[in-house]
Structures are given as structure tokens and as C-alpha cells.
Design a protein around this nucleic acid. Structure first.
Lengths: 210, 210
DNA sequence: ACCTGAACACCGTTCAAGT
DNA sequence: ACCTGAACACCGTTCAAGT
């Protein structure tokens, strides 16, 4: 998350200075509610403020513009996402690599599907702003965690691990994303997970060092 | 593309009735220009009409609302995309399967990157409307073409071809999409194409019938 | 028959007035 | 010091008036 990006979406008033961290959370929660009930195009700062029980003026004290709401939402979400994947990678240190593949794939799909509508709403919101920087930083965190994990596999060492790892993660992120674009959550089922696991394992197996 | 979806974005006046097919094209071309020069959030129906050299009123004669512009743009684009992939699949009938994999992957990436900024603009525009139906119909066309192609491979028959094919295409669509989200076109390079080809081929190889 | 663009309703954002 | 919400500028969309 670079300063350049932050500058446009940066909160006016830092909530840490006062007790108003709660207000910020209330506003963000209200944003999600409005997103879920009316969709991105119908989302109005007035409506969000109303739902949050504050005045529009107050909302604009904490968020410089409407996009800042979307930015904060995605920022929190991506941070949460990266944190959970990091945790899984930690847990799987030293395991056989097939277990690692399985663990990361299923955790990632779980996170995205456990609140399917929220994920959809966040994707919609993300499209209205430039999220490339926060997406990039989330990707980096996961790349580091995942590469560290794979390097510790109990049953294999890999050639070009860094490049393999990046490819696998991009495939995972992208494939899951596709099902949200197609609005076909039912395809994110066990069968797809199984196929991805097979694909990832055979791909890794091919690069195993003797 | 279902009737339900069409109803909201359907042109008011069918351009085939009069010489105004040109007007529709001019408006759509103007929409792309405005998207490229000012971005989605700054795009105004007035600005589009201005750029197209028609009045706002005229624009609304052909497009019932702003979203209809985005819908028409994506509809044309996805149709073009599916058409080109179908053609490649046709050309590759009876080839060895590794050539098929290579041909489809590189053509898909070519289409998406040959006008990178337009692709980005279309993704942005797509996020403001419900494109799941036209995306779905594009996916179906490509699935059919690709499955037919793979079934004709000169050097292999596959177990569960239909399921393999769907998985591979979703992975391809998704992986490419990821690089647009991350805004890192330089990663869509030959190395990634190579890795995807390897991954797809080993995945297919594993399912080869004796 | 078709085009035009002023007019309307609504939304993002501000800032003078309140406490 | 901070909140409020009327007010302003602007945008999507319409429709009475033109040709």
C-alpha cells in the first residue's frame, strides 16, 4: 500500500486520536449493509450515514470521499485474508507438500465462500477504485508465507521454487475469481478443489529435485 | 444472454430499422474513447454524446441508460473473443494436444493484451453491470470449441475430458484476469505462458487413456 | 418522424451555523 | 472542538418544443 494510493483515500481524521474508532467501524459496517441490500450503484453516502446513525458531514470527517469507504473495506478484507493464509502456512510448516497444497487451496476457497455475498459486494466495490497496490501487498505476503512453507516440505525439494510458487498462487487467485465473475458459486465445490489439488501436485512433482 | 438481462439494457430503437447503425457504432466508439481518457467514474452520458457528436437525447434513443453502453461494449467484446478462440480451435483440429494447449493459451493472452488499456477499461465497465449471463455464454462457446478440439487430438484420448476441459479453461481465464487486477501486465509474459502450458500438459497427460 | 437541450430529480461534497 | 444538514455543483434521464 503505497503513499500515492493512500493520499486519495486517506482518512481526514485519524480515529486513534479520539474514541471515534467505533464511529469508523459503524460507518464501514453500514457500508457493507448498504452494499448488500442495494448494490454498488444505489449506494449513497447519505444512505450509508443514515444507516450508521451519523450525519453526512460526520462521515466526511472520517472518509474524504465515497471511494475511501470502498478502499477501507477492501483494505481490511485483504489484510484479514492474508493473515489467515499466513496462519495456515505456519501450521503446515514441515508437512508433506500435498498436504500443504490441499491446506492452502481449501483455506483460500473457504475464506472467499464462507460469506459469498460479502465477497461479491467487495469485488464490486473494488472495481470502483484502484486496488492494485493493496492487492499487490496482499499477494506479496501470501507469496512469502507460501514459499517459506513449501521450502520446508518434509518430502521434497523443488527446482525454481520461487517461480513455481508465484505461478501456483496466481492460478489459485484467478481461478477462484472466475467463479465470482460467472456468478456460479456452486462450481467452487469439492470437485474443483480436488482438480486444483491434483493439478498443483503434479505440477510440483514435475519440479521435484532428486 | 437471457431475456431477463436483455430487458434492462435493450436498445430502445433497433438500429437495423434505419441507417442509424452507424450512430450506434459512433456512440460505442465514443464510449471507449471517454473510458480511456477519463475513466469509468468520470464517464458522463453528456460527455459521450458530445464526443460522438450527437445530443444526449439521441443517445437515449438508442441506449436506455448509461449501463446499456457498458453492456453493449462487453457484449461485442466477448463475442469477438469467443469467435477468435473458436477459430483457433478449428484450426487445431487433429493436432497433437500439446500444440492445442499452446495455441489456445497464447491466443487468449494475445487477445487480452494486444490492447491492454481497452481490456482494462472493459473490465472496469463490466463491474458496473451484471455481465454474468454474457460471460457465461462466452464460456460455453469456448468450452464447446475446446472440448471438440481436444477430443480430436492426434496423440491421445482423455478420461473425463469434459471435466478436464472446463477446469483448464477456468484456470486460464482466471489466471489472466488476476494480472489485470494486479495491474501487472509485464507478468503476462512468455515465462507465464510457458508455465501454464507445462501445467496444462502435465495435467492432461495424467488423464491420458492407454 | 426524429432530434434537441433545458429542466427535473438526485447525489457527492462542503461549510456556515449551531452546540 | 465537533457535529449538523441545507445548499451547491453536477449527473442521469426525460419530454416539450422544434424541424
Amino acid at each position: 500500500m503505497t503513499l500515492k494510493t493512500l493520499s486519495s483515500y486517506n482518512p481526514r481524521r485519524s480515529p486513534r486520536q479520539r474514541r471515534s474508532a467505533a464511529t469508523v467501524d459503524v460507518i464501514l459496517e453500514a457500508t457493507i449493509q448498504v452494499l448488500l441490500s442495494t448494490g454498488t450503484s444505489q449506494l449513497t453516502t447519505t444512505r450509508v450515514a443514515e444507516r450508521a446513525g451519523v450525519s453526512v458531514g460526520s462521515l466526511y470527517q472520517y472518509f474524504p470521499n465515497k471511494q475511501a469507504l470502498f478502499f477501507a473495506l477492501n483494505d481490511h478484507y485483504l489484510d484479514h485474508l492474508a493473515g489467515r493464509i499466513e496462519k495456515v502456512c505456519e501450521t503446515l510448516q514441515g508437512a508433506p507438500y500435498t498436504q500443504m497444497v490441499q491446506g492452502v487451496i481449501s483455506e483460500y476457497i473457504n475464506i472467499k465462500t464462507e460469506r459469498y455475498d460479502v465477497t461479491c459486494a467487495l469485488y464490486r466495490a473494488a472495481a470502483e477504485i484502484d486496488v492494485s497496490d493493496i492487492v499487490e501487498s496482499m499477494c506479496r505476503r501470501i507469496e512469502v508465507a507460501s514459499e517459506g512453507m513449501l521450502a520446508s516440505a518434509s518430502d521434497a525439494k523443488f527446482q525454481n521454487l520461487s517461480s513455481l510458487n508465484v505461478t501456483l498462487l496466481n492460478v489459485l487467485f484467478g481461478t477462484v475469481r472466475t467463479f465470482f465473475d460467472r456468478n456460479r458459486p456452486e462450481l467452487l465445490n469439492n470437485q474443483l478443489q480436488e482438480q486444483l489439488i491434483i493439478m498443483f501436485c503434479t505440477y510440483l512433482n514435475r519440479a521435484k529435485l532428486p
